[in-house]
Design a protein around this nucleic acid. Structure first.
Lengths: 112, 112
DNA sequence: ATTCTATATCGCAAATATACGATAAAGAAA
DNA sequence: TTTCTTTATCGTATATTTGCGATATAGAAT
């Protein structure tokens, strides 16, 4: 990269990009899907359903935590993760603000 | 990575991840914002408003094209890009299917 | 107290992404 | 035709991400 230009962009642009980045790997989508499916906290079962090593899954969970997409608590030998729906809600709004504006998708026209 | 495990995930997981990946850099969000702001095709003006070299912007545009997030035509010396709203609409639905399910955000509860 | 189980972290290798300058390509302007 | 303008692509350097095995940590089970 030579230089990381990330900080030269607007705060809200960085915010959206960071959220998107957290969702930019199929393993992390699969993790969210798994948590969402149970609609409750789950712990180690994630590793079982993913084609990845335990350490790799742990790393992906860490990414999701860092981006605030999930919350988590560790009680000794068991850890527990939940989806942070507030962030999804917030992102949905920001997203709408940027891209929908007043118009609906149907009204949008392309010229190419 | 040693091995890319991407293909071992579900098709729809990969699809969401790929879309998110396209939006995972502030420069690409800024590009979309710029196109959206004008609500019409724009061409070279993107380079002017971004803190990046022309070749880098062109590369980011290529990424967005690859992910089908924008459409583009090249007429000789001028190129023209539009946001592909259909893909945003589709993503919004898939996203909702996975993460909202029947419940609204407000009804969702966390346990951690 | 020792062993088992679940999870996080470290260290490393390989793959990808980011960024730029130089250059190519191709129509527009002179 | 020659030069200018706009955009894409190539080559390359550096940064970041992905992935794993090994190991650390800490409570649970024996």
């Amino acid at each position: 990269m030579a230089q990381n230009k990330k900080q030269e962009f607007d705060k809200d642009e960085i915010e959206i990009a960071d959220f998107a980045k957290a969702l930019s790997h199929p393993a992390r989508i699969a993790i969210l899907k798994e948590i969402s499916k149970r609609d409750t906290c789950i712990c180690g079962e994630i590793v079982e359903v993913l084609p990845l090593a335990q350490s790799t899954v742990s790393q992906h969970l860490k990414e999701l935590l860092k981006a605030n997409v999930i919350t988590g608590t560790v009680d000794g030998t068991k850890s527990c993760y939940c989806i942070n729906w507030k962030v999804f809600e917030k992102f949905e709004k920001t997203f709408a603000k940027f891209f929908h504006k007043a118009k609906s998708f149907e009204e949008k026209r392309n010229c190419c």
